[in-house]
Structures are given as C-alpha cells and as structure tokens.
Amino acid sequence: MKQRLDEIKLSNAQIAWRAAQDLRDGAYVNLGIGFPEMIATFQPEGREVIYHTENGILGFGPSPREGEEDWDLINAGKKAVTLNSGASFFHHADSFAMVRGGHLDLAVLGAYQVAQNGDLANWSTGKGGVPAVGGAMDLVHGAKKVVVVTDHVTKNGDPKLVSECTLPLTGVGCINRIYTSLAVVDIEAQGFVLREKLDAISVDELQALTGAQLHLDGDINLLDAPKL
C-alpha cells in the first residue's frame, strides 16, 4: 500500500498548486513559513492577491536575486523578499490586529495533525527540546478562512487527519479545509467532509488512511493537478 501511495500521491508542489486554485482575486492572504509559501508560486493568472507577513508587510513579492537582498525587507521566515506595487509597512501590533481582527481572507498553515472538529496541532511534537511557537497560534484565529496543506499521512503511514489530536494543540476548532496529497476535505459540523479525491484511490482506501469518519455530502470531485 505504501509503495502504491507514494506513486499516486500529489507532491507538495501539486498540493500547493491545488490550494492556489482557490485563491480569490483581491484576497489578503497569509502563507505559513515553508510548504505553504509555495502556494504563491502557483497563483492563477489574472488574480491579484495581497500577501501579508507577520513582521509587518502587506504586498510582498518573490525573493530578490542573490546579492540583492535587503535584510530590512524579509518575511516571517526571515527570507529576503521584494515589494509589489501598493505594498505597505506597519508595526507588529497592527500586523496581528489584521490577523485577529478578522481582516485577512485566508491563512494557510502546515500541520502535524488536524482533528475532525477542526483542532490543529502544528507547533510542537511534544518531545522536549526548545519550544517555539512564532505566530502559529495567532494565525489560526481571525482569518475568514483557515486552511491546511499537508501530506494525508505521516512518514510512518499514520493518519494526519484524526479523531482527536494527540500532539500539543495550536488552536481549537479553527481549521476549515485541508488540502492533502490524496484529497480535499472540509471540516463542517458533522466532521470531515470529502470534497475531492484522486481518481487512483477509492473512498474505502481513503477512509482507511483517515483517523476519523469521512462524511460524504453530495458529489466527490476529481482531485487533479498538473505534473510540476
């Protein structure tokens, strides 16, 4: 099963591509550090999206060429960025007012586990070491939509979509949608609702890889992404 999964599953770039298809024109969006940042690469043409970074920029663009970095112009991952036309700067309290105050349209995060009630665990493996939370606990509150991009299962094959998170929580009941390597799943009152799946996997197989009931509600659309 694992070998077959590795053959059919979407790559991180393809998951990012799929999530990017839902970016709305004119949206204010925060992309989490790492994997979620890749979504900006696949922003559909003809749509204008304003990206927010916690350290005080709205409207930043891609990284500059090497040697052209300005270290006062970085994103939350401390990577050098550029400015798009219409960008603005602000201090940290205003930045998180945009987050908590419900002004962002979308926040995209990575996940260790997402529970069927929308709880998210993505900041600590609970194994000791140096704990670090950054802005994750803030970002899950206030954006109009909070979504996750993730592999459907862990490297060991354990479900990442679970009935209850066993790892330390980032937020309670905060996630609306999950884009995985196998499916697109919404979180609604009844729990996980399957919206899209790869053609190569059956609903039963998908259920076996998911730690809680996958509810079916209307059509299940085809999850398809170009080779990237």
Partner: peptide, 22 residues
C-alpha cells in the same frame, strides 16, 4: 540559546507572537 536552555541556565517564557506584540 539552545545550549543554555537545555542546560537549565536560562529561563524561557514562550509567548505567541501576536500576543507578545499586544
């Protein structure tokens, strides 16, 4: 930081970033 934290030589109060700012 890591070496001193793990050796118990420095105390850490971890605060979510937006909460820290506020």
């Amino acid at each position: 930081f890591t070496d001193r934290y793990l050796a118990g030589k420095i105390e850490l109060e971890l605060v979510p970033q937006g909460t820290l700012a506020e």
